[in-house]
């Protein structure tokens, strides 16, 4: 595996994620359209499905907010790389910005200066994990700000696990139509302050049609709010709740809610 292979893979993954939603996400959206009764909600969901098809047909990004470049990497411990993986990913993002193209979204947090290539200190945001095996797995998740801005984290008391559902409801209720519902909810439970946020984000990589009972229960409550697609009312405020847990300190219970818009864009590749 060469530096250039990683660069090319990153470009192609961003292209794919921006242009085509994965099948599970499309299925969830279609289910909502077929089961929604509110008239305005149905117009919004129909537009969404048409938009998804049109983007694929024309090979253009689904949404103009092509997001911030977030990249999850799993390196098999038997792999031997003689190049800097982070700089290969960074180069991939720089070229994807020109070639896909991606909107240059990354700016300096204080001066708001925009370098124009989605690259800067800490950007792309790369999360690296070492796993068993001899493969390199790359997942990209270009994430828009409308939904990211509605996310929240709370350091709960150790025995407050029953209040997690309430916290999710609070977050979704204050978000209303802002994060482009119907949303996907990444829920991180445990780990540390920063760790639970990462868990919440990583949960959004999962197949959105597979949920356990705990997640389904929270989803039902969220949809009971009636915010609906685009905050204009309806049955479908969220399409999935996806959680990940991590062991935490005996004295704490960190909980993070990472809100994702309906355009839950991600793409995956495995290199040897």
């Amino acid at each position: 595996m060469e530096y250039e292979d990683v660069v090319r893979t990153v470009i192609e993954l961003f292209r794919k994620a921006e242009i085509e939603l994965s099948e599970d996400v499309v299925r969830a959206l279609r289910f909502a359209y077929e089961n929604e009764e509110n008239e305005i909600a149905r117009i919004n969901l129909k537009n969404i499905l048409e938009n998804v098809e049109y983007a694929k047909l024309k090979g253009i990004p689904i949404c103009q907010d092509t997001g911030l470049p977030i990249v999850f990497v799993e390196i098999g411990r038997e792999l031997c790389l003689d190049f800097d993986i982070k700089s290969a990913i960074t180069e991939g993002v720089r070229r994807a910005t020109r070639e896909v193209p991606l909107r240059p979204n990354a700016v300096h947090p204080l001066t708001r200066e925009n370098p124009g290539d989605n690259v800067g200190k800490g950007m792309p945001y790369v999360i690296i994990d070492v796993v068993e095996g001899d493969r390199l797995k790359i997942a990209v998740m270009p994430k828009g700000a409308g939904s990211e801005n509605c996310s929240a984290l709370k350091m709960m008391l150790p025995h407050d696990s029953k209040k997690i559902k309430r916290f999710v409801l609070d977050v979704v209720r204050s978000a209303m139509g802002k994060p482009c519902p119907p949303i996907f909810i990444g829920l991180g439970i445990g780990s540390t302050f920063d760790g639970c946020a990462k868990l919440a984000k990583k949960a959004l990589l999962r197949d959105v049609t597979q949920m356990n009972e705990f997640e389904m229960d929270i989803l039902d409550a969220v949809n009971g709010l009636g915010i609906g697609p685009m905050g204009m009312g309806g049955k479908f405020t969220a399409l999935a709740v996806l959680s990940e847990i991590g062991y935490c300190h005996t004295a704490s219970l960190p909980v993070a809610v990472n809100v994702q818009c309906w355009a839950n864009r991600r793409a995956f590749a495995v290199l040897r």
Binding site: N47, I48, N51, A55, K58, I62, C63, C180, P229, M230
Partner: peptide, 13 residues
């Protein structure tokens, strides 16, 4: 006026 969020491709039409 509301335009469906995220439908940037469709809007370009």
């Amino acid at each position: 006026l509301s335009y469906t969020g995220g439908c940037g491709a469709l809007a370009s039409k």
